[in-house]
Design a protein around this nucleic acid. Structure first.
Length: 470
RNA sequence: GGCGCUGUACCCAAGUGGCUUAAGGGGAAGGUCUGCAAAACCUUUAUUCGUCGGUUCGAAUCCGACCGGCGCCUCCA
């Protein structure tokens, strides 16, 4: 029984799908004006883990992530670079897909773009104007926040307090400073679309309402995003969708904690960020995912090299077993079948994940599992290949398919046959040297290979090697 | 000022009334194995959970006060 913390109710609730045959899941995607940073990556990865876990539980998931390709920041960037907005967004959309692929994030069912949903967006605004939830101020359409009685229910804010805070810029055209733009009148040189109110472009929030409605329906199961989207973005989405459709918009709201750097939120505006692609040059996707998975998704998480390295070190322990399993399965030996309670590990894994996605607990289960398997291997003469198959199945279902921290198909050896053959040759020479007690030579071979990123490991069965990243 | 989150070992981090006199990872120390390494395994590393009170047969877990950190309230995952 999966339980999730719902920002809307501020409680951990049992997850009950609207339609058990297909869960509808929407995640706020990137605004494509730049590379996304490793903090953004945390949200994308965690949403991916939620999705994968739902699939582990046997659900079909319709997973939709929007691409915001109309936005002030895009216009700014295109002016700076003196090329049209479309070229800018195309480049960053491509970069986005490159990065999420490297991060082993499963492809969404759909990546709707704002620019391809102008009709739906305009229709929704029209509906809101007709229903008097929005008003026209000289070609700008604003949402009339005071008309929507539930305004503030997600973020726990109320209109009076927000106004008392008064950090909102004053805009003469708005009836109320909290009112937000559904449609922005185009200024000279800005990209625009035709609408009943003249040339312009949609405001930020309305695209998510329009596109989620089109692809997932008026009411859907899960809507997720970073903590900072709770207000105003998601609050405004609720206001738009529920005013337009007269139905509850979303059942479960999930929000991800920030990635901090030196205990401070990583953000584009503070400039204290690393792009995901930068970090991926140094650490594997598995290590990055491990780092995220070891912390609770809602809390803050500090980012540093030391922390990433620690996650990577821990992963190595699992990967050493993965290599061993792959090797043993290739060897295909029949031998003793050790008694092992796989079920209890599946159960513990599921219990952890069911409890509001306690991924740190789930990772601990994986480590416990690895330790027990290693113990069996260390204390047995020959272990049957069937055992290794079962071990592989467990790790595939949990660590690989849900958490994405393991990759059984990752090439440990090089892709290049010549390289592999050369290493094998060196190993043969070193083994001979060892037999002749020429340890000076054998150690030189091992050390020099290590400098090249090839790690040799001796065991009773001979010498194995793995090629690390360099 | 309002709202929300948070404070557990050297570091990261679970646990939210008795199964825990506190998981897991990193680090450190010792040991087994090895020609030596590496890997793996074993052992050690919080009688204590920001502080002070209270509730309870029993609290890291509930309540109160206080101290500290962070976020949102403006674009931001």
């Amino acid at each position: 029984m999966l339980k999730l913390y719902n920002t809307l109710t501020k409680k951990v609730e049992e997850f009950i799908p609207i339609d058990p045959n297909e869960i509808k899941f929407y995640v706020c995607g990137p605004t494509v004006y730049d590379y996304f940073h490793i903090g953004n990556a945390r949200s994308f990865v965690m949403a991916d883990i939620v999705r994968r876990y739902l699939e582990y539980k046997g659900y079909n998931v319709k997973f939709v992530m929007n691409l915001t390709d109309v936005d002030d920041k895009i216009i700014k960037k295109s002016n700076e670079e003196r090329r049209n907005a479309n070229d800018v967004t195309t480049d960053y959309i491509n970069a986005f897909f490159e990065d999420i692929t490297k991060l082993k994030i499963k492809k969404a069912t759909l990546y709707p773009k704002a620019t391809e949903h102008m009709k739906e967006i305009i229709d929704m605004i029209k509906l809101l104007v007709d229903k008097k939830f929005a008003y026209n101020a000289d070609g700008n359409i604003f949402y009339d926040v005071k008309k929507f009685s539930g305004y503030g229910k997600l973020s726990g804010k109320n209109i009076e307090e927000l106004e008392a805070g008064s950090r909102i810029e004053v805009n003469e055209e708005k009836k109320d400073p909290l009112d937000f733009a559904l449609w922005k009148k185009a200024k000279d040189g800005e990209p625009y679309w035709e609408s009943p109110w003249g040339k312009g472009r949609p405001g930020w929030h309305v695209e998510c309402s329009a596109m989620s409605c089109k692809h997932l329906g008026k009411t859907f199961d899960i809507h997720a995003g970073g903590n900072d989207l709770i207000f105003p973005h998601h609050e405004n989405e609720i206001a738009q969708s529920e005013a337009a459709n007269d139905k509850q918009f979303v059942k479960y709201w999930l929000h991800f904690g920030f990635l901090n750097i030196n205990e401070e939120k990583m953000s584009k505006s503070l400039g204290n960020f690393f792009t995901a692609r930068e970090v991926l040059k140094k650490y594997s996707a598995e290590a990055i995912r491990m780092f995220f998975a070891q912390a609770y998704y809602r809390g803050p998480l500090n980012f540093s090299d030391d922390l990433l390295s620690a996650a990577e070190k821990g992963l190595e322990k699992i990967n050493n077993l993965v290599d061993k399993i792959n090797l043993e399965i290739r060897k295909n030996i029949s031998g003793a079948k050790p008694g092992f309670d796989f079920d209890s590990y599946y159960k513990r894994f599921e219990e952890a994940m069911d409890e509001d996605l306690n991924t740190s607990q789930a990772v601990a289960v994986i480590f416990d599992f690895v330790k027990e398997v290693n113990r069996i291997i260390a204390s047995s003469e020959s272990v049957d290949v069937n055992f290794y198959d079962d071990v592989k199945t467990f790790l595939t279902k949990t660590a690989e398919n849900v958490l994405g921290i393991v990759d059984f198909n990752k090439k440990n050896a090089g892709d290049d046959k010549l390289v592999n053959d050369l290493i094998e040759l060196l190993i043969t020479l070193r083994t001979e040297a060892k037999q002749n007690k020429n340890y000076l030579l054998s150690d030189t071979i091992r050390n020099r290979l290590k400098e090249l990123g090839v790690v040799l490991q001796d065991s009773k069965e001979g010498t194995s090697y793995k090629i690390g990243k360099n």
